[in-house]
């Protein structure tokens, strides 16, 4: 669950990236976040993962109050979410398997748990049999699947993706969102920032529009 109440973010440069934004996203929702460049979408996500702290207002994410959170509690927050990047951020010199296992090793998972979990997740994202490949040997769509597998491997409550399809061709993009849809069916909250309105339309989900740091529209999908 995400709750923003009158959240403002002013960067040290003086830019007002968010202006008293308020919104609630329930557990298990699937949300697109759209808006023009510089609107404050990435800032919104960075506040959720506490890469940035709000200038004012209150933020609650997965039961934790972020505006008062101590730095040493941040890892606990991050373990409740999986982050997917536009540029994939895979480690080139590691295989697909190790890239995914890395996320588990980083939080001290046992080797036996890693051996069991990684193949399962690779299969889930459609990468079975590609564990030994290196990122450079994969297509863009496949690389993002690795990114997604890494975000999922620690079994997070939500997935946060900032333009996950920004570097992939349209067909592959559709498949990635489809995959996120499947994951959402298992109860994982999904937040996707995107510029691709065609994609948003074909999925018919909740769409939050941010402009100049303000939530200007929030259409809740009637179907789901």
């Amino acid at each position: 669950m995400i709750e923003f109440r009158n959240v403002s973010k002013v960067y040290p440069t003086g830019t007002h990236a968010l202006n008293k934004a308020s919104l609630t996203i329930e557990k298990g929702e699937f949300v697109f976040i759209v808006g023009s460049s510089g609107a404050g979408k990435s800032t919104f996500l960075k506040l959720i993962m506490r890469e940035e702290v709000p200038t004012s207002g209150s933020i609650i994410v997965n039961g934790m109050q972020l505006d008062k959170m101590k730095r040493r509690h941040v890892p606990m927050l991050r373990r409740t979410m999986g982050i997917v990047f536009q540029d994939f951020r895979l480690i080139d010199k590691m295989t697909v398997y190790d890239n995914v296992a890395f996320a588990m090793r980083a939080i001290g998972a046992r080797p036996r748990a890693i051996k069991k979990r990684v193949p399962y997740i690779l299969e889930l994202v459609g990468l079975e049999g590609k564990g030994d490949r290196y990122p450079s040997e994969l297509s863009g769509g496949e690389q993002q699947r690795v990114g997604l597998a890494r975000a999922l491997v620690n079994n997070p409550q939500m997935i946060i993706a900032d333009e996950p399809t920004g570097n992939i061709d349209p067909e592959m993009s559709y498949e990635i969102i489809e995959l996120l849809s499947e994951i959402n069916k298992r109860g994982t909250t999904i937040l996707i920032v995107t510029h691709e309105l065609d994609l948003v339309q074909s999925f018919n989900r909740r769409v939050i529009t941010i402009e100049k740091g303000v939530v200007v529209s929030d259409t809740v999908d009637i179907q789901s």
């Binding site: 890892p75 373990r79 999986g82 480690i91 890395f102 996320a103 980083a106 001290g108 890494r150 620690n154």
Partner: peptide
């Protein structure tokens, strides 16, 4: 630093 940023994004503690 790249690995470190990934570690932090998945919730590695400072000690780790």
């Amino acid at each position: 630093r790249f690995e470190i940023s990934i570690m932090k994004s998945v919730g590695a503690t400072d000690t780790f």
